[in-house]
Design a protein around this nucleic acid. Structure first.
Lengths: 233, 233
DNA sequence: TGTGGGCTATTGGTAGCACCTTTGGCAAGT
DNA sequence: ACTTGCCAAAGGTGCTACCAATAGCCCACA
């Protein structure tokens, strides 16, 4: 995202520290303290501070400094905040809430894709599903993951709603987090492969209902595996 | 959000200009041009630039300046970006994509609320639904809107998923946009009032399925009224 | 025609200043 | 003891000036 190293270093460090709860809400920081701790100038500290303020992690008040805000003020949908929280101690709960978000969004996105996807997207989706079966049966987890990510991103972007498309990065993080956390079976279950193909074909056929149902099955299963909270499908 | 006027002025102006398509993707800006146009120093221009970069609206490159990015790079879920787009020419399409997002999220949030809401939230929800009926039948649109916003915010915040809670502002914007754009009937249709009460009671009773179904009915109807795209409920 | 090297525009980062708002404490009066 | 009001310091807000690094662009030369 940011091309520069300096800002990202300081920003990531502070962002992680706040989102992890390492510094509690209400704690005051100052530009001075940031600058001296990281050995950067006031200017850089100020720019980082503005970013953090934009993310709702902190509010700057005169004479007080930057007071850390509570989670209800955070832009929890911002990719950076999501990343920090996934790297922090609340990883599991974050994975749960993100999965719930997927559960909400992806079926509708699939339905949208069935209506709005271009011809190229439809064929690529079908091809991706087919290759996923091959890789899944071969047991190549890393390659499978990459393709899985690609599949879901393609679908979200093809949904005709850029709000859904913006969640592609989130879904990628969830998928990757899941496999690298060992929450995935050694080789994908056949049902998942079937359902991915079902989604792809429903989209290719322009059948929004079928696409939505198949996607709901995919994400519903995942949710159950993660220890679903409510609503059994 | 920002306590200062200067940044917000410049930021809003540039943000609106970009999100409205007034300056096309690929257009280069420079700190110099920003500073001189708005009569601010380089420092302020830089902070604004960082913010815009964080929102994915521009990318800063040396020797070139800030190149405006295409919509696929934008953080379209960020409250500021949403606000700008709602104020710009693409308002109707933005309202459509946001409504679709509501359609995806709110039913699941209702189900979550049925499981996770506190006692206080449940009773307030029921009370809000009852007052909405009174105000709706009285025809007081402004008051009704305020309560409608409160109802949905309460529900999203009670869902037990802060991702959903973060969308409260979005829903508020959509609701308010709808009534102020004259997309609402002079007095709320009785079905909507019934369904709001149904949601409230399902949440109060701890019945996630019923809450989800009732909320789906609310938001599904809205979608149809706005000129639904696919999936007829 | 192609390629390498230098020029320069523009961001990246630093330092230090003046200003203004806020706030916490102190003092005086009730 | 409690309130009121004033004052001083703290710390963000905004500005200017300056140097470093990098990357696009053009020109000279092969």
């Amino acid at each position: 995202m940011a091309t520069t190293v300096l800002h990202t270093t300081v920003l990531d460090s502070l962002g992680r520290r706040i989102t992890s709860g390492d510094v509690a809400a209400g704690t005051p920081l100052t530009l001075e303290s940031i600058g001296s701790e990281f050995g950067v100038s006031r200017t850089v500290a100020r720019e980082v501070m503005r970013l953090l303020e934009g993310l709702g992690l902190v509010r700057s008040r005169r004479r007080v400094g930057l007071v850390v805000l509570g989670i209800e003020e955070w832009n929890v949908l911002d990719p950076r905040v999501i990343r920090w929280r996934l790297e922090g101690p609340g990883r599991d709960s974050q994975l749960r809430t993100l999965t719930e978000l997927r559960h909400a969004v992806e079926p509708l996105a699939a339905a949208g894709a069935a209506v709005h996807a271009t011809d190229g997207e439809r064929t690529e989706l079908v091809a991706a599903a087919r290759r996923m079966r091959m890789l899944g049966e071969a047991g190549d987890l890393e390659e499978f993951l990459a393709l899985d990510v690609r599949f879901h991103e393609l679908l979200l972007r093809a949904s005709g709603n850029e709000m859904f498309g913006a969640l592609a990065g989130v879904v990628a993080a969830v998928l990757s987090g899941r496999t690298h956390l060992g929450l995935m079976p050694a080789s994908p279950v056949p049902e998942a492969l079937d359902q991915h193909e079902a989604v792809a074909h429903a989209v290719a056929d322009g059948d929004p209902r079928a696409a939505e149902a198949a996607m709901a099955a995919i994400v519903g299963e995942v949710r159950a595996a993660l220890g679903g909270v409510d609503r059994q499908v």
